[in-house]
C-alpha cells in the first residue's frame, strides 16, 4: 500500500475529499495492489445513524453501515424480502459478509482482470489508457450496456436483488441534504467515462437503502450460476419476484446480475409476461427478447445461452411450473 493519511470521520461533512472506507473488503484488496492509492482514507464506521435497519413507510430503511450478514439475517427481511436474504447469502463468504456493508456492496468495483492488473490498459482505472479486455480474455465481462471504452460487469448479488425489489439509494451531501434515487438511476453506464460509476458527487455519501413495502404472497427467488458451488462471483444471475392469480402472471419484477455494468433490467420482458398465462412457450419467447443477438466480446457468447436458460428456470420456479429449492414466499410483516 502507498502511504495515506487516516482520518476517522466524526461528522458527515468530514467525508469530502477523501477515499471513504467502511468494511474495506474490496477497497483494501485494491489498495494492496495499488489499483487504488488514496492520499487520505476516511473511516466512516463511527458515524452515527447509519448502522440500523428501521421500519420506514411500510418498508425498511437499511443504514449504509449495516453489514451484509445483518441484512440477510434480519427477521423482517427474511419474511418480507426473502430474495434479498438469498442474494446476499449467495455472495462472498461468511467472513466477508460479516465485514462488508450495504453501502460498500453497492460501490464495490468490477472484478475485470485488466482493472486489477496495473500493467494493462484500463479506462476505469486509468482514464484514457484504453481497454485491454477488448481483444483480451474476458469470460466475466458484460453482455449488456457496455461501451467502446469498457466491457466490465458489476459483480454484486445484493444490488441485483435490490433492483428487482425497486429499492432506492439514499444519498446525503456535505450540507446534510438528503435525496433518494432508484437503484437503476444510481449507476451510470460506462459511456466515455467508465471511471465514473455512479451519480455520487464529491462529499456525497450513501447513507441508506430504502426498501418499499413487500407484497404478501409473492414468490421470490435469486438464481445464481457460477463456476463453483460457493464463494465465487456470478457468471449470470436472475433476481425475480412474481405474484400469480391462478395461472395468470399478475405482477413481475426482474433484474439480472453480472451481465452489465450495473444490475440490468428490461421493461419489455416484464410487459410480455404480465397478464399472460404462465407457460414454457411464453418464457421461451420472453427469453429471446431479453438476450442480445451477439455478445460484445467473443468470450461472453456463452452468457447469452446461460442467461436465457437461467431466466426460463427462474420463471418456471416463480410461476410454479417447476418446484425447486430456493423459492421463497414473501410474507408481509406488520
Amino acid at each position: 500500500m502507498k502511504p495515506f493519511d487516516y482520518i476517522r470521520a466524526g461528522e458527515i461533512e468530514d467525508v469530502a475529499g477523501g477515499q471513504i472506507i467502511a468494511g474495506g473488503t474490496n477497497l483494501l484488496d485494491l489498495m494492496k495492489i495499488q489499483v487504488v492509492a488514496p492520499d487520505a482514507l476516511v473511516d466512516i464506521t463511527r458515524l452515527d445513524g447509519l448502522s440500523d435497519i428501521a421500519e420506514h413507510e411500510g418498508g425498511l430503511r437499511i443504514g449504509a453501515l449495516v453489514t451484509n450478514t445483518t441484512v440477510a439475517n434480519d427477521a423482517r427481511v427474511r419474511e418480507g424480502w426473502p430474495l434479498l436474504s438469498r442474494a446476499i447469502l449467495a455472495g462472498a463468504s461468511a467472513q466477508i459478509r460479516n465485514k462488508a456493508t450495504t453501502g460498500g456492496n453497492l460501490l464495490q468495483r468490477t472484478r475485470c482482470p485488466y482493472f486489477y492488473d496495473t500493467s494493462q490498459a484500463c479506462n476505469k482505472r486509468a482514464p484514457g489508457s484504453g481497454c485491454a479486455a477488448m481483444g483480451g480474455a474476458g469470460r466475466m465481462l458484460a453482455i449488456f450496456g457496455t461501451s467502446e471504452h469498457c466491457l466490465a460487469a458489476h459483480p454484486s448479488d445484493m444490488a441485483v436483488a435490490m433492483a428487482a425489489l425497486e429499492a432506492e439509494v439514499e444519498i446525503t451531501n456535505a450540507s446534510g441534504e438528503t435525496r433518494c434515487v432508484p437503484m437503476n438511476d444510481f449507476y451510470r453506464g460506462p459511456a466515455d467515462r467508465p471511471d465514473v460509476e455512479t451519480v455520487l458527487g464529491d462529499g456525497d455519501l450513501v447513507t441508506a437503502v430504502i426498501l418499499p413495502t413487500p407484497r404478501a404472497g409473492e414468490r421470490q427467488t435469486y438464481r445464481k450460476v457460477r463456476d463453483r458451488a460457493s464463494y465465487a462471483f456470478a457468471l449470470v444471475s436472475v433476481a425475480g419476484s412474481v405474484r400469480m392469480e391462478g395461472d395468470t402472471i399478475k405482477d413481475v419484477a426482474l433484474a439480472y446480475g453480472s451481465v452489465a455494468p450495473h444490475p440490468w433490467m428490461d421493461q419489455k420482458v416484464v410487459e410480455m409476461l404480465e397478464g399472460e398465462t404462465a407457460s414454457n412457450e411464453l418464457f421461451q419467447r420472453a427469453a429471446k427478447t431479453l438476450v442480445p443477438e451477439t455478445a460484445p466480446h467473443p468470450d461472453t457468447e456463452y452468457k447469452i445461452t446461460l442467461l436465457r436458460r437461467t431466466f426460463i428456470a427462474a420463471m418456471r420456479q416463480l410461476t410454479g411450473l417447476a418446484d425447486s429449492a430456493g423459492t421463497d414466499i414473501s410474507r408481509a410483516h406488520s
Partner: peptide, 27 residues
C-alpha cells in the same frame, strides 16, 4: 493469500468471524 480469498487469517472480531488481512488495525 493476504487478499481475503483463503480464510487462513480468520479471527473473531467482537464475536464474529472476519478475515484479519482485510482489517486495518487503526480502524
Amino acid at each position: 493469500c493476504d487478499h481475503g480469498q483463503c480464510g487462513a487469517c480468520t479471527v473473531l472480531l467482537n464475536g464474529e468471524r472476519v478475515n484479519s488481512c482485510l482489517c486495518l488495525t487503526a480502524m
